[in-house]
Amino acid sequence: MNMTQRTRNTIVGYLFLTPSLIGYVVFLAFPIVFSLIISFTNWDLISGLKNIKFVGFDNFIKMYRDVNVTKALKNNIIFAVTTVPMTIFIALFFAVLLNNKIYCKRMFRLFYFIPYITSITAVSVVWLAMFNPSSGPINTILRSIGVAKPPAWISSPHTALLSIIIVSIWMGIGFCMVLYLAALQNIPVSYYEAAELDGTTELGKFIHITLPLLSSTTFMLFITRLITSFEVFGIISVMTGGGPVKSTTVLVYEIYIQSFQYYKFGYASAIAWLLFFIIFTVTVLQWVGQKKWVHE
């Protein structure tokens, strides 16, 4: 045994890494490179790999003119800028409420959290029923309190996206709330006691102590929720199929349609890279911006 400790460690280290390295190469690294390459080709499943042709930036130019993609992008942006702040705001409100001394705290925490761990299909089918325009529970209640013409929700192109936004907020609250609860428990009680001695009001304590000390959690939530909201797919796939008249289509839905209905693999991959580019930009912008408002 003349091997140095260092060489031996390297061999052992890579032995420990082997299973994950195989997975990494086969299901992550290779697909990423592959996807980037085919986004510059006209590849579709029907004509096969043999007839693959490089088309330069054609897919990206086509995307720019494709009304479905621009519509999807617009919907994605509307969806993100409404869902994310609303979810985080409501979650913060719930977390602050739950952080008080109350009865059955753990039970309520689980109650608020259940929508988040319910599968996307179960959520979608129950909300399909909720939003049923003629006889769904929401419109039944609206009519009983005197709303003569309640909205048609997912059946109308004017309210379909709003309906999807409501469902997403409802689903996301629990997750954000739990993170806020954990962060709230880390704020030393002495801060509040000191503020009380100075005669600070409840609202003052919230604005000057709670909010700044939660800012790093808020920041993390903004980043992760924005990414998640650009990747929204399941609810739309089950509830609306992107309709009516494309009013709820989003980028991932277009990627799905192009890949597995039209088998336009090259074009679909190009849209996927657009999605990556957007997510990447948004994340970088937030990292840059965080210095201005995140309290360390």
Binding site: P31, I32, F34, E231, F260, A272
Partner: peptide, 19 residues
């Protein structure tokens, strides 16, 4: 490993389907 976390899973959808 960490770097790939930034890449949405939809980017690799078609290649994974082929694999």
């Amino acid at each position: 490993y960490l770097a790939t976390m930034m890449i949405p899973s939809q980017v690799t959808l078609v290649p994974r389907f082929m694999i």
